[in-house]
């Protein structure tokens, strides 16, 4: 039961706003984020879990447009996927939690591609070099586009000071959900379904 409760709490804490508040509180020594031991989920102070439900900063807003290049030099823009549901995932080669969820994304890409899902992996540490980035992506089994960030896109998406960070963009170009940190696989799938379920009508300007 304790493990179950801890899992529920952990599942809720990756919300972006919650995480930012948690970071702020941790820095104020008001809350302790206690890493879980091997095989157990991390435990979070109740006050931290209570932040769940805060509105993320970009949710409900038009996804900031971007145009970036892939590892093989191809130009890719968010606008290329108008009418699709797009998962914009920021990651880095040095980020362990990122590498855990990337195979999940690959599974979801295959499962939901026919319904209009597109996954874009935006690598944060471009200085790692294309070869290292490609190696990590290959090891994770990723075939969806890996885009090289330019610094501007991170700023447009709120700074991306936590990784992994994901934005689930609906068919109308509006961000349906955003998460920071690794969340449960079924919750990622739920966010994907929410993005796919969004209407393509009423697309805002500037994004897709």
């Amino acid at each position: 039961m304790i493990v179950g409760i801890a899992l529920m709490v952990w599942a809720g804490v990756h919300n972006l706003r919650a995480r930012r508040l948690a970071m702020q509180k941790a820095q104020e020594n008001h809350v302790e984020l206690i890493p879980g031991s091997a095989g157990q989920p991390g435990k979070v102070d109740e006050s931290d879990a209570g932040d769940e439900g805060e509105e993320p900063s970009l949710r409900g807003k038009a996804a900031p447009p971007f145009s970036l290049t892939t590892l093989d030099g191809k130009k890719v823009s968010l606008a290329d996927y108008k009418g699709k549901a797009v998962l914009v995932n920021f990651w880095a080669t040095w980020c362990g939690p990122c590498r855990v969820e990337m195979p999940w994304f690959q599974e979801f890409q295959k499962e939901y591609a026919d319904q209009g899902l597109v996954i874009l992996g935006l690598v944060d540490d471009v200085d790692a070099g294309n070869a290292a980035i490609a190696k990590v992506a290959e090891k994770a089994g990723v075939t969806y586009p890996i885009l090289l960030t330019d610094g501007k896109v991170q700023k447009a998406y709120g700074g991306v000071d936590v990784l992994p960070m994901s934005f689930y963009v609906g068919r109308n170009g509006v961000i349906v959900e955003e998460t920071a940190g690794l969340g449960p696989k079924d919750q990622i799938e739920a966010h994907i379904k929410a993005a796919l379920a969004s209407s393509a009508s009423g697309a805002p300007s500037g994004g897709q």
Binding site: R19, P97, D124, D161, V162, L163, A180, G181
Partner: peptide
């Protein structure tokens, strides 16, 4: 480079 139990930081 720091991480917590579910996320990492630049």
């Amino acid at each position: 480079q720091a991480c917590d139990h579910a996320a990492c930081y630049p």
